[in-house]
Structure formats: C-alpha cells, structure tokens
Simulated assay, not measured.
Amino acid sequence: MLRKYETTFNKILPAAIIMIIIVLLFNSIMLARTVGYIHFPGEMGKTEVARQAAEMKVDFYEQRAAEANVLGSSSVRDALAQMKFELEKAKTLEGIFEVQSIHGENLREVIDRELDKKRSEIILNIINKDQGVKYYEGESLITISKKETSGVEIEDGANLLSEKTVNLLKQNKVLRKGTWSPIEVRVDNGKSELVTARTLIDRIKMYETEVNGLRSELKEIRTFAGLTELTGGGITVKLFDSEEGFSDIDIVHDRDVRDVVNELLAAGAAGVSIGDNRIVANSSVRCAGPVILVNQQPIAVNPIVIKAVGDPKILASSLDLIKSQLMEFGIRVDISEEENISLPPLKEKSDK
C-alpha cells in the first residue's frame, strides 16, 4: 500500500512543480507589468496614456466651446491652439502633466470668460429691446443669475421688464445652461448698461492667468538654465578608454566629451549632464593634465558618464558618426536608451 502511494506521489510531483513554476512566472510578469518594466503587445506606456488623457481633455474643452457657441472667438481658438502645440511638444510624463495643469486651466478660464461675455451680451440685447426700459425715467438695477437647482432668476425691483422679456431671458438656451454668477444691468433714464463692478473679478482672473503664465515661463527658464532637476526619457552614454594602451590617442579627451555633448544638444536634448555636473550655456569641459574638469570640477573617468533627456532614439542615432570615429582609436562608446533618467541641478559654486 505504501509503495502504491509513493508511486502516485512521484507521478503527481512533476506536474505540481511545473504548476508552481507557471504560477510564480505569471505573478512575476504581472508584477513587472504593474511597476511599468514591461508592457504587453498593444499596451501603451504611462507617457502615452497621459498624452491620450490630455488629448481627450482638449477634445472636451473644444466640444464645450462649440456647444456654448464661443469656438469662433479668437481668444478661445488661440488658447486651444496653444494647448495642442504645447501637448505635441511635450515628450515626458512631467511635461504632459504640466501642459494639462497650466494650459488646461488657462483654456477653461478663457472659455468661461468668453461664455460670461456672451451671456452678458445676450442679456443686454434682450433688455434693451424692452419698451418699459426705453421709456423709464430714473435709475434701477436688474440682476439675472442661474443657480444649479433652479432656472434663470430675475430680480427687477422696479418691475421694468415685460412678461415677454422675462420669458425671453428664462427660455434662452445659452442662459439656461450651467450655473453662473449674477449679472447686473443698470438702467438709467432709458439706457441700460452692465455694472462695471464685475470687471474687478475679470481683472483678478486676468492677473491670475498672467501670473500662472509667468510661473510657467520661469520654471521653463530655470529648467533650461539647469537650476532645477530635470527628469524624463533619454539616454546614458559611457566613454571607455582604449584597452590596448594609454597613449595620448588611446584615452578620452575633453574634445571628445564636448563633441558628444554638442551632438546631443543639436539633436534636441532638453538637458545634459557629465558625471554629476549639469551642463549649461557657460559650462566648461577641459583637460588639466590627466584630469577632465567639468564646470571646474574633476569627474570620474573610464567610463565618463554622460546623460541626456530627450527622445531616446533620436539622441542615440545622433551619436552614430562620433561612435564610429572613436572606435577607430579603440575608444568604446556604450549607449543605453532609458524611459526615465534624472539630471541634477547645477551645483552652486563654493564661496571659498
């Protein structure tokens, strides 16, 4: 009996081990997929998912502007075109989120402002046609608003508006949509005009938009100046001295490093670092005897590590010529494309 159980166990054991291996392998693949190391065929990466979401947001705002009949406004068209342009230019996950945050908010505010303007024009046009308003002697205030739980509400203390005018205001398709802040119309001896006190809010919104724009420009300037950390897709380049000797032509020189950096910048790199040193407009790369100095700081050699943020494939292909030239002297150039790398900010100079 015992021998029979042993035989059965021996038959089941290999299948059980294979099943356990399959389960572990499957769990490992799913874990790698979850953290973004691998993607299944046809599956989009995080950057493409974010880009698609941003494009859907643009479509939403464009449809909203069309439904509100403000798509023909030049300010709306300009804001839409600017967001589409910035989104197309953004190559990193951080850049796409920044476009959504800054330009998406700006687009929303432009549409809301144009919609407020359109509502005001409609209200003023309807009220101006009312005969009671035309022949009114004195001064009165009419307030029109739209709350979420009710229709268009009209406060007309002097009862200037006719029943026809009231119905036109309450049934207007544009005025019936959404919710909006009260719009006040002052009637003064037959003449009606919008109360200008509301322009203070518009000015505040305009200043907020300008401040956000300046913040965006400042951040972009600081990034290009190398004053902030820069992250995104890119490449890592490693330059190794020739293994055959250590004569002058067998080692990596400062001019070789400069050539690599210049090619990367010409290929559209958003930022470059050598070792832990960020490269900016006035950076220096030079030899001091056997030592290579970057921004007056010695760097590790063999390999010399250069990192660049930008389109990985374009940056890598831009170094084909330099790579082949250095190989003639036995200098090895290793290039790896990466989904996410970080460049340190420019190191502040010591006061010593």
Rank of each mutant, 00 (worst) to 15 (best):
195 V>F: 03
196 T>H: 02
196 T>M: 06
196 T>D: 03
196 T>S: 01
197 A>E: 10
197 A>I: 07
197 A>Y: 11
198 R>W: 01
199 T>S: 05
199 T>P: 00
200 L>D: 05
200 L>C: 03
200 L>A: 15
201 I>S: 12
201 I>W: 07
201 I>R: 13
202 D>L: 03
202 D>N: 11
203 R>G: 02
203 R>M: 04
203 R>K: 14
203 R>V: 14
203 R>D: 10
204 I>N: 02
205 K>T: 13
205 K>H: 12
205 K>E: 12
206 M>H: 14
206 M>V: 01
207 Y>A: 09
207 Y>I: 15
207 Y>L: 15
208 E>D: 15
208 E>Q: 12
208 E>G: 07
209 T>V: 05
209 T>N: 11
209 T>F: 02
210 E>P: 03
210 E>D: 09
211 V>H: 08
212 N>A: 12
212 N>I: 00
213 G>C: 01
213 G>T: 04
213 G>P: 03
213 G>A: 00
214 L>T: 04
214 L>C: 05
214 L>R: 03
215 R>C: 00
215 R>K: 05
215 R>F: 05
216 S>Q: 06
218 L>S: 11
218 L>I: 12
218 L>W: 08
219 K>P: 00
220 E>N: 13
220 E>L: 06
221 I>D: 03
221 I>G: 05
221 I>L: 14
221 I>F: 09
222 R>L: 09
222 R>K: 14
223 T>S: 04
223 T>F: 00
224 F>Q: 10
224 F>A: 14
224 F>H: 14
225 A>R: 13
225 A>S: 15
226 G>L: 04
226 G>P: 04
227 L>D: 03
227 L>H: 01
227 L>P: 00
228 T>P: 00
228 T>V: 12
229 E>L: 07
229 E>T: 10
229 E>P: 08
231 T>G: 04
231 T>A: 11
231 T>V: 11
231 T>Q: 13
231 T>I: 01
232 G>M: 09
232 G>Y: 11
232 G>F: 13
233 G>S: 14
234 G>F: 02
234 G>H: 07
235 I>S: 13
236 T>V: 15
236 T>G: 10
237 V>D: 10
237 V>K: 14
237 V>L: 09
238 K>M: 07
238 K>W: 01
